[in-house]
Design a protein around this nucleic acid. Structure first.
Lengths: 198, 198
DNA sequence: TTGACAAGTTAATACAATTAGTTTATAACG
DNA sequence: CGTTATAAACTAATTGTATTAACTTGTCAA
C-alpha cells in the first residue's frame, strides 16, 4: 500500500497511455494497471473518467502552448504567425492522440481546460501587438487565426485532404499566407465591411 | 417477432436519439430500446457500434450537404461562398449533436463518410467555377475554406469564443470576408508567394 | 502512544458491446 | 397447400468498464 500517487502522476500516465494505445483505449482500468494499482484507487485523486479526460486535454494544451510559444520566441507579426502556424501543425502531426484529446467537446467547458486554451491565445496577442490593432480587432483576428489552424489540422488528421492533385503542405502555407496578407490592409478591409472600430 | 427493421431505420433512430439525449448517450442498447427491440437484434443489420457511428456521421454529412447546397442555389462566387458559410454555421448551431458526429475521427476513414464529405466539397467547386482558377488552385482554396468553416464552428461549439469583448457573429463574418477578399487578388497573392501554378 | 485520516484494498452493482446458440415468421418452391 | 431455407428476432452468457460501498492499514500529529 501507500504508493506515492497523485493526480499529476495519474494524468501523465494517462497521456502516455494515449500516445501508446490510442486515446479511445484510455480507461481508468488501463491507467490503474499502468500505475500498478487497482482502478478504484484512482478515485482518491480524481472524481472519475470525466476528470481524467479533462486532465489529458489540459496536458495536451499545455504542451501545445509550449511548442507554439517556443516557435514564436524572438519573432513578431508575419514571421511569428507563420512560425506559430507551422509549430501548431507539427505538434498535431507528432502528437495525434493528444491533439484528439483537445478536441473532445465536453472537456472544453472545463475551467482549467478553458484557461489552458486561453494561454495559447495570449501568445497570439503578444505577437500581434506591433500591429497596434484595437483589442476588438485583435480578438476577431485571433479567433480567425485559431480557427484556421484548428480547422485545417483537424480535417487533415481526419483524412479529408487525401486528394493527390494538390500538395497538402502547400494548401496550408497558402491559407496561412492569405490570411496574414489581409492584415496589411486591415483598415481598408474592415471599412469596406463595417465602420472602423478604433 | 419480425419487425420491419433495416439499417436505415436504425441509423435514423440513432440520429434522433443523438439529438434528444446527446451523442455520447447513443448506445446500441438505447437505440434498440427506442426501436422496441433487443440490442443483439441490431447485429442483423449492422456490424457493430463502429458502423452505427459511421452511419450517424454519414446522415449528418448528408443533411449538412443539403443545407449547404440549398443555400448556394442560384448564387455563385462571393455571394455563394458567404451564403454557404452562413448555412454551414447555422447547421452546426441547430444540430450540435449531429455536427459532433461528423467530427469523430475514426469515422472519417470510412468509405461512405469520405464520399459524403466529398460531395460537400463538390458544391464548393461548382460555385467557384466562374473564377476560372486552375484545378489545383481551386483545391487549395476549397481546403482552406472548409478549414475555416469547420475550425470556427467547432471552436465556437467547444465554447472557446466566450469573451464578451467581441461579437462572435462578427468574428465569423470578418473571417469569411477576409478569406474571400484574397480571391480577387489571387494572381497577385499567389505570385508573391510562389510562381503561378497555371 | 494513539487515533484520525489518507490512500489503498476487495466486493458488488450496473451498463454496454459482442458472441453463441435458439426460435420462429415468411417467402419461395415443390 | 405443405415444406423448408433463411432472415430476423430472441435469450443467455462473456467481457470490459465505471462507479460505489465497505473495509483495512500506513503515517503523521497531538
Amino acid at each position: 500500500m501507500r504508493r506515492g500517487l497523485d493526480s499529476q502522476k495519474i494524468l501523465n500516465a494517462a497521456a502516455e497511455l494515449a500516445e501508446e494505445k490510442g486515446l479511445e483505449n484510455v480507461s481508468l482500468l488501463q491507467v490503474a494497471e499502468k500505475l500498478g494499482v487497482k482502478s478504484p484507487s484512482l478515485y482518491n485523486h480524481l472524481s472519475g473518467l470525466q476528470e481524467l479526460s479533462s486532465g489529458i486535454a489540459k496536458i495536451a494544451l499545455d504542451r501545445l502552448e509550449a511548442a507554439v510559444r517556443s516557435a514564436a520566441v524572438g519573432r513578431s507579426k508575419e514571421s511569428a504567425l507563420t512560425a506559430i502556424a507551422s509549430a501548431y501543425r507539427k505538434f498535431a502531426k507528432e502528437n495525434p492522440e493528444l491533439y484528439k484529446a483537445i478536441l473532445r467537446f465536453p472537456d472544453c467547458r472545463n475551467q482549467s481546460v478553458q484557461e489552458a486554451g486561453h494561454s495559447v491565445v495570449r501568445i497570439l496577442y503578444q505577437v500581434m501587438e506591433p500591429y497596434h490593432f484595437s483589442r476588438e480587432e485583435t480578438l476577431h483576428f485571433t479567433r480567425g487565426f485559431r480557427s484556421v489552424l484548428h480547422g485545417f489540422v483537424s480535417l487533415e488528421a481526419a483524412g479529408f485532404f487525401q486528394s493527390s492533385e494538390a500538395d497538402v503542405d502547400k494548401s496550408y502555407e497558402l491559407l496561412i499566407l492569405r490570411l496574414i496578407a489581409t492584415l496589411n490592409s486591415t483598415e481598408n478591409a474592415l471599412s469596406s465591411i463595417a465602420p472602423p472600430v478604433v
